[in-house]
Simulated assay, not measured.
Amino acid sequence: MTKLHKKIVLTGACGNLGMEIRATLAALADTLVSVDISDAPATLLDNETFVQADCSKLDEVLPLMEGANIAVHFASIADERPFEDLLGPNFLSSYNVWEAGHRHGVQRVIYASSVHAVGMVENAAGADLDVDHAPDTFYGLAKCFTEDLGKLYWAKRGMESVHLRIFSCTKVPQNARALRTWLSFDDLRHLVDRSVTATTTGFTVVYGVSDNDRAPVNNDKAAFLGYKPKDNAENWADSLLASAAPADPSDRAQMCIGGPFATIPLGESGVAAIKAMAPAEQAATDDAKKLPSFLTKKGMNP
């Protein structure tokens, strides 16, 4: 069977989300080249090869892009850190992927951006895709940089890109905030598939969020991608809200779409803040994973 592309390069292939999309990308290309600074996965797909490389070094990225049609750039430190720690993995790596891709004629880059590029926007703002950048951390600033980098390479070099502003991507919703922000693994794979298979994209931003009743953003202006998420965090609402923290409109972690990243000091881990959940809320999350079979059939990934 003829694949859509000859070669797709995936950076960050051994990360949590990279591992979830490898099979999706392999199904779209004759060859998938998976790249990570870590060791290779235990098992590779039939048409997958692995290269251990540091994306913060241009000379290691350049040969990867030779003959590639699509680059999917998921390599980064996926948390807030001091700026100096993020400079190579989160800023320079993006430049290297775009520049190496340009030199080798890559058609399009799919980038794992983040809600944290606009993390200081309030939930109540109803943000669409034209909302101004409002990073909540140095990590979010790196996402803004790469979105602007993609916009620049489209305007000056005709290189397409799709920037996925990924929200809370987990197997099941983990806390009350995720009722707004959850992205299921199935919907992530669907979003990546649509970003790769779209006939043309130019420079495009799209929110990586499932079909949640309480989603604080909308993707109307990226409808041409054909991304139609199916999963809905509302199926976990009763369990997650039962022990959620009281509503506090003075708490920016509750009011802003970046959640705890909106209140942590610059350079300090936001993931640690998210994990520091009250025991009762964590117990509710654990209970929420025990879903009835009818939800399993709806693709809820329990």
Rank of each mutant, 00 (worst) to 15 (best):
K57Q: 15
L25N: 14
A29N: 11
E48D: 12
V35Q: 06
T43F: 03
A27N: 14
V9N: 08
A27W: 07
L32P: 15
A13V: 01
L25P: 10
K7Q: 08
I37F: 07
E48T: 09
I21D: 06
D36H: 00
L32Y: 07
A40H: 00
G12M: 06
M65W: 03
K3N: 13
A42R: 13
P41Q: 00
S38W: 03
L45H: 10
V35L: 03
V9I: 14
L62Q: 14
I37E: 08
G15V: 08
L10F: 06
L44A: 02
M65G: 00
L58F: 14
D30Y: 05
R22L: 04
C14N: 11
V33L: 06
L25E: 14
V33D: 08
V61W: 01
A29P: 11
T11D: 04
V35I: 05
L44S: 03
L58G: 12
G15D: 10
T31A: 13
F50S: 06
A23L: 10
N47I: 12
L45I: 06
V61F: 01
I8T: 14
V33R: 11
L25R: 15
V33W: 05
H5P: 12
L32C: 08
F50A: 04
L32A: 07
A27C: 11
M65Y: 02
M19L: 15
A27T: 12
H5V: 13
L10Q: 13
T31M: 14
T49A: 07
S56I: 01
T43A: 13
S38Q: 10
R22F: 02
N47R: 01
L45G: 08
E66L: 09
L62G: 09
H5I: 11
T11I: 12
D54Y: 01
L25F: 08
T24R: 09
D36I: 00
A13G: 09
V35P: 10
C55K: 03
G67L: 03
F50T: 03
C55H: 03
G15T: 10
N47S: 09
R22D: 01
A13Q: 10
K3W: 12
